[in-house]
Design a protein around this nucleic acid. Structure first.
Length: 1009
RNA sequence: GCUGAAGUGGUGGAAUUGGUAGACACGUUGGACUUAAAAUCCAAUGGCCAUUAUGGCCGUGCGGGUUCAAGUCCCGCCUUCAGUACCA
């Protein structure tokens, strides 16, 4: 019998599906355990070998927990709303739902062939109306809630209304917009309904607001901060600009403190918690109010160092600050306006890139020091950001580097308020331990004491109070996209109204085209049946809108993170049509015990989901306020790309007449991304000398035309990506019409001499006529797997060739789960031959070998040390080392010629989480009728590992020289005697007396000589 | 700049509380089997030196230190990756 993995794997995958082996029940005598993967976005490209890494790890853990007697919930689903399907729809007219359905089919097939133990009966899809019904439902709950800062929780908005009626908002301490006015009970009652709604919107946990957003013109949508990388969109790399728009926002900032505190209660990686802490960005300090001299205005600032208030020698406002135009004096007006204008012109990116330059303008106005009443010049400067704090700072040049640089640059006073510190010499080291001086009532106090006192004094004069500031901004929740959850919202007189929960879901309307409308409205603006009939309670044609009973519906859709913020709970009761989940289900499953996914979601999904969970906790819907007890970030599996570099200059694509005359055009150099970012002329010369020589051959006049291209647009033109598999070459050249000289190519790269060539359109292409061509250079680079780089390894091929069990074992064997590591298919033969060896322990060429023979001591020792190690490894998520352990076990048992059922049966259970198909097959061969999946995990018995002797390493001055087998019963002295008596010891000592002999019984002997 | 993680053979990576550095694989070399190949099996494999075996020296990014003993602990650097960035 040979190990026919293809047949076996198919057989057991069918078996599991047919018998619903992994279906989890919502009640059980067993303890529960919930293992969850971050659900995938089903992209058109399908899975590559990097995707299943986390799924394999979680599957091993889920299977292990089943063996350990747990009732395991291990579901899977799809985050199926998203931009790629929409982009595809724009290009082809294909409905995103159709594309998504197709992609899901591919994903499912690919996932199934790897043998995961998912409970597919609980599958969810975020784009399914029966699912997004509940996403919409949560949105309504958020709308109907506000955040009470006294109870530190979300409460129903009706409570707030009652309070307004009773006493206005004077006693209310709730999260709200900054521009919320104060009003009395009488005021409230006098407000019109519209005014009341406007006020309430300032308190609701989701609200409409005119916000400055990151607008991406190319994508026609708003992007969240975490969707922007280096100033361009994460997807597609398009430029992003700031723009004001009316958007739905989530008042996540209300939860800043709880999101921060909650981190201490969960077992997530430190780095991830740290990113969230940074993102929340708590800083404790004070707000201080400065009066503007000769002008009825005041400036609020936030400072973390109120103790340095006597060191203030100027103030700086952000150029966008609203007071700037008012307080600027006539003499300064021209200069200030010029500066403000210049700043406005600079993009956010420019401002960020240019941190070093100091710039600013004096407004001519003065503020008044709250205590000394001294005049303080008010400046504007673009180092102060309008978006953080109050957009104004009190500058303490002796305590803050930037304030100091600014003061020095403009020749402003630098008063010293630190005792014993020479500020002209000492840099801005920690001054926390230095005493305050020249500061009136703060003199002689340390940082802590002075801070307290300063705040107290400020409060006394009513010009400040202690304040905590958070960097965390409210999250914009509207997207100008088609393929997302529609809002359950219609508008009456411009005021948003919620559709009652019983009419959900509001399903996505059909549209003719998926682009924004000609008037610039989101894609839903193209829908013709998209109005809400308040009497019939249904969606009706836009033509019927009368603004009496029929009103327009919201045109934005929800962002990607909406659906992913509640799916982990929905899995507990995914088919419930009446509730988001039953109380029984949530009480039973509680929360995710183990969550596995990528760290790229650190400040996106993982923060928003925690926010929703806390909100749902406040509503009493969930029993715990953190959704995932433990979280592990799996690393990424990287691909190896071959990158060809070549310089060519051609006349046909010269950009303009001038260049043509000069005969210079050398943009066609592609240097691998990482190199290009930092490359200097000298470096380049070293790397690609011959290319450099061409550039400097005199035929090319100017090095300045020399471009290192790494932008996406240029890829097709400039670079050749060659697949790393030498039997298939993809040469990808766009914008060119000539055939590639294949012979020349093969001469250039002999490793491809037997390859078949495939061009982009079936034909191999090459660039246009070239004047000078350098030699090709090929380098290899490890980077993210991507279709673009021709470095994708498809798991289908691996499963076909080696089997799913080999793939699973190999992905684990590659290295620690959390680590980023390159894929190298060559190594898979090792784990594959391990499985063949395992098979051979049970089967000969002809027959089944397992017998009822009594196991020997050695057999038992091998088994039990394997049990011990594998159990420890799984508990530590160290899956790579347990694969090694299996290899050692099988090698040993093969050498021992073990055929004993007592050994080989438990061995299968140990391996089953990792290689479930082969384990099931051999388990069945052993006569079992039930799946191995719930067979109890073997119990480790320490007595099998007890040794009577130990081969002691004998070291001299810490260096191991030889080994000596000694009984473990020996005392320290006996060991020392035995070691000293050995002739090899005498050899080492060469007649010297040992100064000291260290004996660690059971471990080591060290002789100092 | 700040925060976090990490630097070990040709490669991926092992190494409980400090206690035999390089487990387990890949690759490479040699051998067996075969007409041949594949598959399988056996042996060697950190570097350097020596050799008749026994051996010796150097080795975990760099420089110090603690210790009988350091990949592991301490101090000071360097490099790489990731996140974040004028946060007052």
């Amino acid at each position: 019998m040979t190990y026919n993995f293809n047949e076996i794997e198919q057989k057991w995958q069918d078996h599991w599906a047919k018998h619903e082996t992994f279906k989890a029940e919502n009640n059980s005598d067993k303890p529960k355990y919930y293992v969850l993967d971050m659900f995938p976005y089903p992209s058109g490209a399908g899975l590559h070998v990097g995707h299943p890494l986390g799924y394999i790890a979680s599957d091993i853990y889920a299977r292990y927990k089943r063996h350990k007697g747990f009732n395991v919930l291990h579901p899977q689903g799809y985050d199926s709303f998203g931009l790629p399907a929409e982009q595809y729809a724009i290009q082809t007219g294909q409905h995103p739902a159709v594309t998504t359905e197709e992609n899901i089919k591919t994903y499912r097939r690919q996932l199934d062939q790897i043998g995961f133990s998912f409970d597919w009966s609980r599958e969810v899809r975020t784009s399914d109306p029966s699912y997004y019904k509940w996403t919409q439902w949560i949105f309504i709950q958020l709308f109907n809630s506000y955040y009470c800062n006294i109870d530190h929780k979300a409460e129903n908005i009706t409570e707030l209304i009652k309070e307004f009626e009773r006493a206005g908002n004077t006693h209310v301490n709730a999260a709200c917009d900054e521009d919320t006015p104060s009003f009395s009970s009488e005021d409230w009652k006098a407000y019109s309904e519209l005014e009341k709604q406007e006020i309430l919107l300032k308190y609701r946990l989701t609200y409409l607001a005119e916000t400055e957003v990151n607008w991406c013109p190319a994508l026609g949508t708003v992007l969240a901060n975490d969707e922007i990388v280096n100033g361009v969109s994460e997807r597609g790399g398009h430029p992003v600009v700031r723009k004001k728009m009316t958007q739905w926002s989530m008042r996540i900032s209300a939860y800043a403190e709880r999101l921060l505190q909650g981190l201490d209660t969960i077992d997530w990686t430190d780095s991830l918690k740290e990113s969230q802490r940074n993102w929340i960005g708590k800083s404790v300090g004070a707000s201080v109010t400065f009066m503007v001299k000769d002008y009825d205005a005041k400036i609020d600032v936030f400072t973390t160092r109120p103790d340095t208030i006597f060191g203030v020698s100027f103030m700086t406002l952000a150029p966008e600050h609203e007071l700037v135009s008012q307080i600027t004096t006539a003499e300064q007006k021209a200069e200030v306006e010029a500066y403000v204008e210049a700043t406005a012109k600079r993009s956010e990116r420019d401002r960020m890139a240019d941190v070093k330059t100091i710039s600013g303008v004096f407004t001519g106005a003065y503020a008044e020091h709250p205590f000394t009443k001294a005049p303080i010049p008010i400046w504007i400067g673009d180092y102060v950001l309008a978006s953080y704090g109050t957009g104004a700072v009190m500058a303490v040049p002796c305590g803050d580097q930037r304030d100091c640089d600014f003061a020095k640059y403009f020749g402003i006073d630098i008063p010293n308020i630190f005792e014993g510190v020479d500020i002209s010499e000492e840099a801005f080291a920690s001054k926390d331990n230095v005493k305050i001086a020249n500061s009136d009532f703060l003199n002689g106090m340390n940082y802590k004491k002075a801070t307290k006192r300063a705040i107290y004094e400020l409060e006394q004069i009513g010009q400040g109070k202690g304040k905590t500031n958070y960097r965390l901004r409210d999250a914009v929740f509207s997207r100008q996209r088609y393929w997302g959850e529609p809002f359950p919202v219609y508008y009456v007189n411009g005021m948003p109204q919620m559709i009652a929960a019983q009419h959900l879901p509001i399903t996505l309307p059909e549209v003719e085209k998926y682009l924004p409308t000609e008037t610039g409205e989101p894609p839903l603006g193209n829908a013709t049946v998209w109005a809400w009939d308040t009497s019939k309670k249904e969606v009706v044609s836009n033509d019927l809108i009368d603004n009496k009973t029929i009103h327009p519906l919201e045109l934005n859709t929800m962002p990607g993170w909406a659906g992913s913020s509640q799916y982990f709970n929905r899995y507990m009761d995914p088919h419930n049509e009446d509730e988001i989940f039953s109380k029984d289900a949530i009480d039973y499953w509680q929360q995710v015990d183990l969550y596995i996914g990528g760290s790229e979601h650190a400040t996106g999904h993982l923060l928003y989901a925690r926010f929703w969970q806390k909100f749902m906790f406040d509503l009493g819907l969930v029993p715990v306020d953190e959704f995932a007890k433990k979280l592990i970030n799996q690393g990424m599996i990287l691909g190896t790309s071959a990158i060809a570099h070549r310089v060519y200059c051609h006349t046909s694509s010269l950009k303009n007449e001038k260049e043509r005359v000069k005969g210079v055009y050398t943009s066609n150099i592609y240097v691998s991304k990482k190199i290009s970012e930092e490359i200097e002329e000298d470096n380049f010369k070293e790397i690609n000398k011959d290319i450099y020589d061409i550039i400097h051959s005199g035929l090319l006049d100017e090095i300045s035309n020399f471009n290192f291209n790494n932008s996406e647009e240029k890829v097709g033109e400039e670079i050749f990506h060659i697949s790393t598999n030498p039997t298939h070459v993809n040469v990808n050249l766009v914008n060119s019409s000539d055939e590639l000289d294949i012979e020349a190519f093969k001469n250039w790269q002999p490793e491809f001499s037997n390859a078949s060539f495939i061009g982009d359109s079936g034909k191999v292409l090459t660039p246009r006529r070239m004047e000078f061509v350098s030699d090709f250079k090929v380098s290899r680079e490890v980077e993210k797997m991507s279709k673009r780089w021709y470095n994708v390894v498809n798991p289908d091929h691996i499963c076909e060739q080696y089997g799913a069990d080999s793939l699973r074992l190999y992905e684990m064997f590659l290295g620690p789960l959390e680590q980023y590591k390159p894929w190298n298919t060559a190594g898979i033969s090792g784990v594959h031959s391990f499985l063949k060896k395992l098979w051979k322990l049970y089967y000969d060429d002809t027959s089944f070998k397992v017998t009822d023979a009594t196991p020997t001591k050695d057999h038992l020792k091998t088994l039990h040390k394997t049990i011990k190690k594998v159990e420890e490894d799984i508990d530590n998520f160290s899956f790579n080392t347990s694969v090694s352990t299996f290899m050692i076990a099988v090698n040993e048992l093969t050498a021992q010629k073990c055929t004993s059922r007592e050994i080989l049966e438990p061995l299968l259970v140990l391996i089953s989480p990792y290689a479930p198909h082969i384990a099931e097959e051999l388990w069945e061969a052993l006569g079992h009728k039930q799946s191995i999946s719930t067979a109890p995990f073997p119990v480790f018995e320490a007595n099998h590992l007890v040794e009577s002797s130990k081969e002691y390493p004998i070291s001299f001055n810490g260096k191991m020289r030889f080994k000596l087998e000694l009984s473990l019963d020996l005392s320290k002295d006996d060991i020392e005697k035995a070691v000293l008596a050995d002739e090899r010891t005498q050899n080492q000592l060469q007649g010297r007396e040992p100064k000291k002999v260290i004996v660690v019984p059971g471990k080591i002997v060290n002789i100092v000589g």
